[in-house]
Design a protein around this nucleic acid. Sequence first.
DNA 1: TAAAAATACTCCATAGGTATTTTAT
DNA 2: ATAAAATACCTATGGAGTATTTTTA
Lengths: 303, 303
Amino acid sequence: MNIELRHLRYFVAVAEELHFGHAAERLRISQPPLSHQIQMLETQIGARLLARTNRSVALTPAGQQFLVDARQILSLVDDAASRAARLHQGRSGELKIGFTSSAPFIKTVSESLSTFRRLYPDVKILMREMNTREQITPLSEGELELGLMRNTKLPDNLEWRQILREPLRALVHRLHPLAGCTSISLTQLSREPFVFFDSRVGTGLYEDILGLLQRHNISPYITQEVGEAMTIISLVSAGLGVSILPASFQRVRLSDVVWLPIEEPDARSELWLVWARHRELSQQAIKIIDLLSESSVCLQSTD
Amino acid sequence: MNIELRHLRYFVAVAEELHFGHAAERLRISQPPLSHQIQMLETQIGARLLARTNRSVALTPAGQQFLVDARQILSLVDDAASRAARLHQGRSGELKIGFTSSAPFIKTVSESLSTFRRLYPDVKILMREMNTREQITPLSEGELELGLMRNTKLPDNLEWRQILREPLRALVHRLHPLAGCTSISLTQLSREPFVFFDSRVGTGLYEDILGLLQRHNISPYITQEVGEAMTIISLVSAGLGVSILPASFQRVRLSDVVWLPIEEPDARSELWLVWARHRELSQQAIKIIDLLSESSVCLQSTD
DNA sequence: TAAAAATACTCCATAGGTATTTTAT
DNA sequence: ATAAAATACCTATGGAGTATTTTTA
């Protein structure tokens, strides 16, 4: 036989009532099995806990100590159970999300994240900036639970959902000849000095935008290779060339930069939410997937 | 249904093996009831703890947390049980003993106490100096577990055992006429200035010795009334009178004091160990009762 | 004598076993 | 095809109930 929580519950009841009959009543059982269980507990422990004559029940010193311990253990069990439940329900715990640098510029994303923080303040959101390529392995291995990335070819152990489909826009300096157009065609950019990502950075946008240009048989004249979208915008602002970026970057308003719609209909980029197919998603993850999906329904394109 | 420690034990086994079959083997049960018990635990908690495909078992975040908690709870149960056992066996805990001021002068007593301390270093011995009369109520009420006192009339809810039966001795100054005798009779003291306890002090020795004198129709000529035996001895040493004390006080060797045997055969005093009759004795108390009884057998009278 | 715990026994709920199915690799 | 968990169903241990005895205040 082993000590069970039942024994502790029974013992605490008797210790509090100091009367087997009343304790049994409180426990909704009859008195004899209660006496029996207490005896079992005492032999199991190897100590008399309750000094009982047929007329009175009192705690022995060992019983006094054990009462304290038993109460603590019982409340720890409750705590452990509710802590596990909170974690399961996604009301606490942590959520590891990888994201491409462009993600936080997107209203949908930043709003969903702040809504999540407000709704579940006890969930630690761990955001790690990683480019599309870097996220694949951690997602497969469970190191990251969710990834925010640009549309790309994924291994089939990863599942994805489109969060946002937004137009690509051309950026030119205010004094550039094209700045006055209401929209432009990609060919009009072909001979312009092009500010763009270094291929080694691994941004999804690199393949995305270069793919677009290749589909239209344009090989851009890349003069500046940088690491971050912000740098692209500031170099355009400084008049060092033109570029193409998703419309959501328009939120970054630097002086002297003009954003122009592109006429080609495939000048679009998608933001994807990605997770491991066979790995069970946490409630935390499910909740943020829901939040991001919801808001992306309302707002398919951001300006 | 309730969470039981069985559930925690089973969960820990599965969490450690990450394999229901192996865990079941370790637990000496078959696999299906183990699966079932884990399911019961999960529904009871309201959280999935183990993410299991038919090919692999992994801990969910809630499960990881719960594993830590479950291990802690199980070890606390062990701790609580062994702590209670230690207390019960009298290897720790505390022992409240009341004692008359004369008790620690007695070899038997001081040796037994130091033996006890050596054998059970984790038991706190709380010695409180109280006269015979003062000990009665605390002993009945359980405030004191044991009392060391002189022979006296006890209420019948208290039980006693004689630890020591020793002769009473007369103390006189070295230059006193009686100092040369090898023994004296009580009548020889009747006209001497008598140094004795204040009746209000409540020492058992007061009744003991005054009773002896009364039995022999002697009313002593009390010139000095003091609170402690030590004071009696020092006043005799200063030549302020004579007195009678148990032989064990002879260990206190003050200059110029001569101890004389008394001829009357009832010039004896007993030291009693007293405890509450219907109150269950702790193992600690039983052990020290044994120690005191043992040594009192070897050494019935101390000089 | 009466109140309360302990015994003695009986019964049934459920922990645990056996056989089988399902499922994912 | 195989390994492993889940399901279905059965068995039996032991927790709980009823009746009675013991104890002591």
